Lab assay of single mutants.
Amino acid sequence: DTINITLPDGKTLTLTVTPEFTVKELAEEIARRLGLSPEDIKDTHNGKTLDPSLTLAEYGITPGSTITLEIK
């Protein structure tokens, strides 16, 4: 299953994830792909900052969802 990550420059990154991924694991994968530190990444969905300890499923993030990435 894939989700879309909207980057600060407007580009989109597509990642393969499972509903059990935590937001922290997602940030780590994004950081790895972009050459950043996971601590520099802030993920938001529907205007809410995502708690790193919760899973994508707990936020109702499903395949095809879009998450907005902010760099701290």
Results as ranks from 00 to 15, higher is better:
65 S>A: 10
71 I>M: 08
48 K>W: 05
44 T>E: 09
68 T>L: 13
44 T>M: 12
43 D>I: 15
28 E>M: 12
53 S>G: 09
72 K>Y: 13
61 I>D: 01
6 T>Q: 14
18 T>V: 05
52 P>W: 13
28 E>G: 06
64 G>F: 01
17 V>Y: 14
9 D>F: 07
38 P>W: 14
46 N>I: 11
6 T>C: 14
7 L>N: 01
8 P>K: 09
28 E>Q: 11
23 V>P: 01
59 Y>C: 15
6 T>K: 14
52 P>D: 11
42 K>H: 11
66 T>A: 03
54 L>Q: 07
18 T>I: 04
63 P>M: 09
30 I>H: 00
33 R>M: 13
31 A>P: 00
53 S>H: 10
63 P>F: 04
42 K>W: 15
57 A>K: 11
2 T>V: 10
24 K>L: 09
2 T>Q: 10
64 G>R: 01
12 T>P: 02
39 E>C: 15
51 D>H: 05
7 L>H: 02
62 T>A: 08
23 V>T: 02
27 A>M: 15
28 E>R: 06
15 L>V: 14
10 G>I: 01
52 P>H: 12
34 L>N: 01
47 G>R: 05
51 D>I: 06
22 T>L: 04
36 L>C: 14
3 I>D: 03
17 V>L: 06
31 A>K: 05
63 P>W: 02
49 T>F: 12
17 V>N: 00
51 D>F: 04
32 R>Y: 06
5 I>N: 08
43 D>E: 15
43 D>A: 15
48 K>S: 09
66 T>S: 05
34 L>K: 00
27 A>Y: 15
64 G>C: 02
1 D>R: 05
43 D>S: 15
32 R>I: 07
56 L>D: 00
67 I>A: 01
52 P>V: 11
14 T>E: 10
14 T>N: 07
52 P>C: 12
20 E>F: 08
35 G>H: 08
39 E>P: 14
31 A>I: 06
1 D>S: 13
65 S>N: 05
16 T>V: 12
58 E>V: 01
62 T>C: 13
27 A>R: 14
62 T>Q: 09
25 E>I: 03
67 I>P: 00
13 L>P: 00
38 P>M: 12
64 G>D: 03
19 P>W: 03
36 L>W: 11
26 L>F: 08
37 S>F: 11
16 T>N: 12
43 D>L: 15
48 K>M: 13
26 L>Q: 00
62 T>D: 06
61 I>L: 06
13 L>R: 01
18 T>G: 09
40 D>P: 13
40 D>C: 15
20 E>D: 12
2 T>I: 10
31 A>V: 06
55 T>E: 01
9 D>Y: 07
35 G>K: 06
56 L>R: 00
19 P>D: 06
4 N>W: 10
24 K>V: 04
47 G>F: 15
51 D>C: 08
49 T>P: 11
52 P>K: 10
50 L>Y: 10
66 T>D: 04
14 T>R: 10
60 G>K: 02
66 T>M: 05
35 G>E: 05
71 I>Q: 05
25 E>R: 08
32 R>S: 09
7 L>P: 01
44 T>Q: 11
12 T>E: 06
59 Y>R: 05
55 T>R: 06
27 A>W: 15
7 L>E: 02
47 G>I: 10
30 I>L: 11
71 I>N: 05
70 E>A: 07
34 L>F: 06
20 E>Q: 11
23 V>F: 14
48 K>Q: 12
50 L>W: 14
54 L>C: 11
57 A>M: 11
58 E>L: 02
49 T>C: 13
1 D>L: 15
63 P>A: 10
19 P>C: 04
22 T>C: 01
68 T>W: 13
37 S>D: 11
56 L>I: 06
66 T>E: 07
71 I>K: 05
22 T>W: 01
21 F>P: 00
43 D>G: 15
15 L>C: 06
42 K>E: 10
16 T>K: 12
38 P>K: 06
27 A>Q: 12
23 V>K: 00
12 T>H: 09
20 E>P: 02
17 V>T: 04
15 L>R: 00
18 T>Y: 10
29 E>T: 09
26 L>P: 00
2 T>D: 05
24 K>E: 03
22 T>H: 01
20 E>S: 12
52 P>E: 10
39 E>Y: 08
4 N>T: 11
57 A>R: 13
5 I>A: 03
56 L>M: 02
23 V>I: 11
28 E>D: 10
18 T>H: 12
52 P>R: 09
45 H>D: 07
53 S>W: 06
10 G>D: 03
14 T>C: 10
14 T>I: 12
59 Y>G: 07
68 T>Y: 14
52 P>F: 12
34 L>T: 12
21 F>N: 06
56 L>N: 00
46 N>T: 13
40 D>E: 12
55 T>K: 07
31 A>F: 10
25 E>H: 10
71 I>H: 07
13 L>M: 10
4 N>S: 08
66 T>G: 02
38 P>L: 13
9 D>K: 05
45 H>P: 05
44 T>C: 15
52 P>Y: 13
15 L>T: 02
50 L>K: 03
18 T>F: 08
72 K>W: 13
25 E>N: 09
2 T>M: 07
65 S>G: 05
30 I>R: 00
35 G>Y: 03
62 T>M: 12
23 V>G: 02
63 P>L: 05
51 D>M: 04
40 D>L: 13
55 T>H: 02
53 S>Y: 08
65 S>H: 07
1 D>T: 14
32 R>L: 10
31 A>R: 06
50 L>E: 02
47 G>Q: 06
65 S>P: 00
20 E>L: 10
61 I>Y: 08
43 D>C: 15
56 L>G: 00
34 L>R: 02
67 I>M: 03
54 L>A: 12
11 K>G: 13
44 T>R: 12
9 D>M: 05
16 T>I: 12
15 L>S: 01
2 T>S: 09
3 I>N: 04
1 D>W: 15
38 P>T: 11
46 N>Q: 11
55 T>M: 03
49 T>E: 10
5 I>F: 03
64 G>N: 04
23 V>R: 01
33 R>N: 06
24 K>G: 14
40 D>I: 11
19 P>N: 04
39 E>H: 15
16 T>H: 13
53 S>F: 08
1 D>Y: 15
11 K>Y: 13
68 T>K: 14
10 G>E: 03
70 E>Y: 04
62 T>L: 14
70 E>P: 08
14 T>S: 09
18 T>E: 04
72 K>H: 13
42 K>Y: 15
53 S>A: 09
62 T>K: 05
9 D>T: 09
56 L>C: 04
6 T>P: 01
58 E>G: 03
33 R>K: 08
52 P>T: 13
19 P>Y: 03
51 D>V: 03
47 G>S: 06
21 F>D: 04
58 E>A: 05
44 T>D: 07
5 I>R: 06
36 L>S: 07
39 E>N: 12
19 P>H: 04
69 L>Y: 01
50 L>H: 03
13 L>Q: 03
10 G>L: 04
41 I>R: 03
3 I>Y: 02
12 T>D: 04
64 G>H: 02
48 K>E: 09
49 T>Y: 12
1 D>E: 07
34 L>D: 00
31 A>G: 09
58 E>C: 06
3 I>T: 01
41 I>Y: 07
37 S>T: 11
68 T>Q: 14
57 A>N: 06
46 N>C: 14
72 K>S: 12
54 L>V: 10
70 E>F: 04
40 D>R: 12
47 G>C: 13
24 K>S: 06
1 D>F: 15
39 E>F: 15
33 R>S: 07
25 E>D: 14
27 A>V: 15
22 T>M: 02
65 S>I: 08
14 T>Y: 08
5 I>V: 13
4 N>H: 11
44 T>K: 14
62 T>N: 07
45 H>V: 14
69 L>H: 01
37 S>M: 10
16 T>S: 12
72 K>R: 12
46 N>R: 08
72 K>G: 13
27 A>S: 11
53 S>C: 10
22 T>D: 01
43 D>H: 15
62 T>E: 11
15 L>G: 00
20 E>M: 10
4 N>K: 10
55 T>A: 03
19 P>T: 04
23 V>A: 02
12 T>I: 11
46 N>F: 15
40 D>Y: 15
5 I>G: 02
25 E>G: 05
37 S>V: 11
8 P>C: 13
40 D>S: 12
53 S>L: 11
10 G>A: 02
72 K>M: 13
15 L>N: 00
29 E>Y: 08
27 A>N: 15
70 E>M: 05
20 E>C: 07
33 R>T: 07
28 E>F: 09
25 E>C: 06
12 T>Y: 09
21 F>I: 09
31 A>L: 06
60 G>R: 00
14 T>F: 08
48 K>I: 13
69 L>V: 15
21 F>Q: 10
11 K>T: 12
57 A>L: 14
32 R>D: 05
30 I>D: 00
51 D>S: 05
59 Y>N: 15
67 I>R: 00
50 L>R: 04
63 P>V: 07
18 T>M: 05
58 E>S: 06
67 I>F: 02
63 P>Y: 03
47 G>W: 09
18 T>A: 06
2 T>P: 05
9 D>H: 10
11 K>R: 12
42 K>L: 15
71 I>C: 14
12 T>Q: 09
55 T>S: 06
37 S>W: 09
70 E>Q: 08
22 T>E: 00
54 L>P: 03
55 T>G: 02
30 I>Q: 00
18 T>K: 06
53 S>V: 05
44 T>I: 13
3 I>K: 02
35 G>N: 09
63 P>I: 06
28 E>S: 07
54 L>Y: 07
9 D>R: 05
17 V>D: 00
47 G>H: 07
20 E>G: 07
1 D>Q: 11
69 L>R: 00
57 A>V: 12
60 G>D: 05
4 N>A: 08
69 L>P: 01
47 G>N: 07
56 L>S: 00
46 N>V: 08
67 I>K: 00
58 E>K: 02
26 L>H: 00
18 T>C: 05
49 T>W: 14
55 T>P: 06
49 T>H: 12
26 L>W: 01
41 I>M: 07
53 S>D: 09
31 A>Y: 08
36 L>E: 04
13 L>K: 01
13 L>D: 02
20 E>N: 11
24 K>D: 02
32 R>K: 11
69 L>D: 00
38 P>R: 06
